[in-house]
Amino acid sequence: MSQDAPYASLTPDHVLDAVAACGLYPDGRLLALNSYENRVWQVGIDDAQPVIAKFYRPARWSDAAILEEHAFAQELAEAELPLVAPLAFGGRTLLHHAGFRYALTPRRGGRAPSLESADQLEWLGRLIARIHLIGARAPFAHRGRIDRATLIEQPMQAVLASPLLPQNVQARYRVAAQRVDEAVALRLEAVGPVRQLRLHGDCHPGNVLWTDDGPHFVDLDDARMGPAVQDLWMLANDDASMEALLTGYEQFREFDRIELALVPALRAMRQLHHAGWIAARWHDPAFPAAFPFAGEARWWEQHVDDLHELADGLLADGRLADDMGAA
């Protein structure tokens, strides 16, 4: 399997054969779903509901880490939380075919939540709190955590090693990324230790599907250890929406509001990590097609300016005081 094009050999026939190997009967209908890190297909099944086949990116997660994700999903499902968990075949959820690791889940439809609706935000807050009650029972052993090494150092090195970064921008990028790292470190130190728990990890609106019965979550691919606020801030457009989320959340679980002061640091880490993720995956043909702007020097110049702006905001004493006061 080529690491330059890790999914080049994953043909539609392989996808159908992998589903058939589980004892299901594909009817030939395939729909590629919007996913870049992994490859995800909706597969039609004879006389049954379609399934979702997720083929894991080679070498990203260990088998132990994927199985830990599956166990967490099953634990949540067993607690009657609306989260799509993988199906088991012969007692196994992590499956292998043609050199790929994959999992099948039921297909669940839905629409994006309305982040302008206080009622929907409170509902999401209640659901996230219930997820966190389960997540706080025990730690992950294999899936890492939300930290500077994962979200700053590794992506920064990927960018510096990438031909995407213009040579005349390299020194400026290094300085900007290091400033973000230093600013994040100071913010984390100022906030102090906060409780770490198992998280969804990538709780943005695209991973929430809303139906007439309410929301359900999909995609635990980025599940890690981290602070509770990580699963809240990407759903909050402003202070009012965060307050609506917390109104629902605190009906089920206590929330330490000092964690709100972490949001600027988490936002900065995510922005830096996103650029590093694109750089690290540029060899995958799906990435130049999906993110063509990353091939332009002006985008990297703007990215450097954005990083300096993020660092400035984090380092401003008044900004920190305001955030700590809100907490």
Rank of each mutant, 00 (worst) to 15 (best):
L199G: 01
D213M: 06
M242G: 04
T211S: 14
A289Q: 15
R270G: 08
A289K: 15
H204R: 03
H204L: 03
C203D: 07
L266Q: 07
G226C: 06
G226A: 11
W282K: 01
P227G: 09
A294G: 06
Q230H: 08
N237P: 07
A275W: 13
A265F: 09
D213V: 02
P285E: 13
A280E: 05
M225Y: 01
A268T: 09
M269Q: 12
G226D: 14
G276M: 04
A244Y: 05
H200G: 08
M242I: 02
F217V: 11
V218K: 00
H216T: 11
L262K: 00
R281C: 10
H283I: 15
G276Y: 05
L197G: 04
L197T: 10
T211W: 06
E254N: 13
F291L: 02
L220M: 09
Y249L: 12
L272R: 09
A294Q: 10
P205I: 06
P205L: 07
W282Y: 04
E254I: 15
W233P: 00
G214D: 08
N207V: 13
S241G: 08
M242A: 07
Y249K: 10
W277E: 00
A294M: 06
R257V: 07
R198Q: 02
Q230G: 03
D202K: 09
G226S: 05
A265Y: 06
A223R: 01
M242H: 10
A261P: 00
G276D: 01
E259A: 12
A265K: 07
L220C: 05
A240S: 11
E259M: 09
G295P: 03
F255V: 11
R267D: 15
D219K: 02
H274T: 13
D222P: 00
P285K: 13
F287Y: 14
I278A: 04
